[in-house]
Amino acid sequence: MEDKAFELITQMYSEMKQQFEDMNKQFEDMNKQFKEVNRKLDQKADKTDIVRLENELNPKVQALFDGYKQHTDILERIENEVTRQEEIIMRRIK
């Protein structure tokens, strides 16, 4: 039973790790987009364009950050559970 729980937790950990990698790629893509927008703004910066971009991007960035924070919290819980399961297994082995 504990082996199945450990395998499930390990699988969940792998999936979460993959999701973090995907999110990091999304952040990298967003950084590239920000750099491109900044390059264009440097060419022709209009205050109304800057305000519009900030208003459009702030909610998106906040949503990404919230998702990243939720994934981090879940990963921490999984890591704690894996550690607890490992301790239980080590106690039974000894």
Rank of each mutant, 00 (worst) to 15 (best):
K35E: 12
N80R: 01
K4I: 07
V37D: 05
E7D: 10
N24C: 11
K44T: 09
D49H: 13
I88H: 02
E86Q: 04
K60W: 04
D49T: 03
A63S: 01
F65D: 11
K94N: 03
F6E: 07
E87Q: 07
Q85D: 00
I9H: 04
M30A: 09
E54D: 04
V51A: 14
E86W: 08
L8V: 03
E28Y: 11
T83N: 07
A63T: 02
K47W: 14
S14H: 01
K60G: 00
E2H: 05
E56H: 10
V82E: 14
Q33I: 03
K47F: 14
E15V: 03
L41A: 05
R92I: 08
Q70H: 10
E79K: 11
E86R: 06
K94A: 07
K44S: 15
N58D: 13
D46S: 13
E76D: 12
K69A: 12
E15M: 09
K4G: 05
K69T: 08
V82G: 07
L64C: 02
Q26K: 00
V82L: 15
R52E: 06
K17A: 09
E21L: 13
E2P: 07
V82T: 07
H71K: 12
H71E: 02
L57K: 04
E87R: 09
K35F: 15
Q43T: 15
S14V: 02
K94I: 09
K60F: 06
K17T: 07
L53D: 03
F6C: 05
E79C: 05
H71Q: 12
M1R: 09
Q33K: 12
R92A: 01
Q85Y: 01
N24I: 04
E56A: 13
M12S: 06
T72M: 15
L75Y: 10
P59K: 00
E7A: 12
D66G: 02
E2M: 08
M23A: 06
